[in-house]
């Protein structure tokens, strides 16, 4: 029998929405506007969060923000050690990244390996002016020298804990919970 798991909700629809609004404002503030900006979300949930962030920036600044999504599977560093190859999902960056300010969006920042793969992949598309990283949850335990520029919420966790992010577009509801092992 599996050990009893304890689940604890740490964010709900409202708090997630507030965090995203704050992130959007921080992005605009830091970049003094949204000129030359594009948002790219990491598949799967990061892509939906990116869409929301882009929309919020558009509302604030009244400009159109190009939106892309990417799957980082092919840039992972553990492809040959896995028993089963992850299903590769769509990557869609229909704008030119050269000289853009790219806002990379994901749901959870953990070891930093996914972000590393994403950075490599963006650079294969061209040379952006800068890449900034926005994440809903930073749970710590980095294995690479990577940090987020915009964080929705810092949540201290034990390494073996799981952080479960649900979003409406995929899961039917917005929430973040920690599952203690």
């Amino acid at each position: 029998m599996p050990r009893k798991q304890k689940s604890m909700v740490v964010m709900d629809t409202k708090t997630i929405q507030r965090a995203l609004v704050r992130i959007a404002h921080e992005i605009v503030e830091k970049n003094k506007g949204a000129e030359n900006m594009a948002v790219i979300g990491i598949q799967n949930r990061g892509a939906y969060l990116a869409e929301r962030v882009a929309k919020l920036i558009e509302e604030i600044e009244g400009v159109e923000i190009p939106l892309g999504l990417m799957d980082i599977t092919l840039y992972r560093d553990d492809v040959q050690t896995k028993l089963e190859q992850p299903v590769v999902q769509k990557t869609e960056i229909l704008f030119d990244v050269v000289d853009k300010v790219i806002i990379l969006v994901d749901d959870v920042l953990f070891t930093g390996r996914t972000v590393r793969a994403a950075l490599d992949q963006i650079i294969d598309f061209g040379r952006p002016r800068s890449i900034q990283f926005a994440v809903l949850i930073d749970r710590g335990h980095r294995e690479l020298p990577i940090r987020a520029d915009y964080v929705g919420k810092n949540i201290p966790t034990a390494k073996e804990d799981r952080v479960k992010v649900k979003i409406k577009e995929v899961d039917g509801e917005d929430s973040v919970s920690i599952i203690k092992q």
Partner: peptide
């Protein structure tokens, strides 16, 4: 090539 290249290592 991608689908067959998986190692025989651990399941994640």
């Amino acid at each position: 090539l991608y689908l067959l290249s998986g190692g025989e290592g651990k399941v994640e």
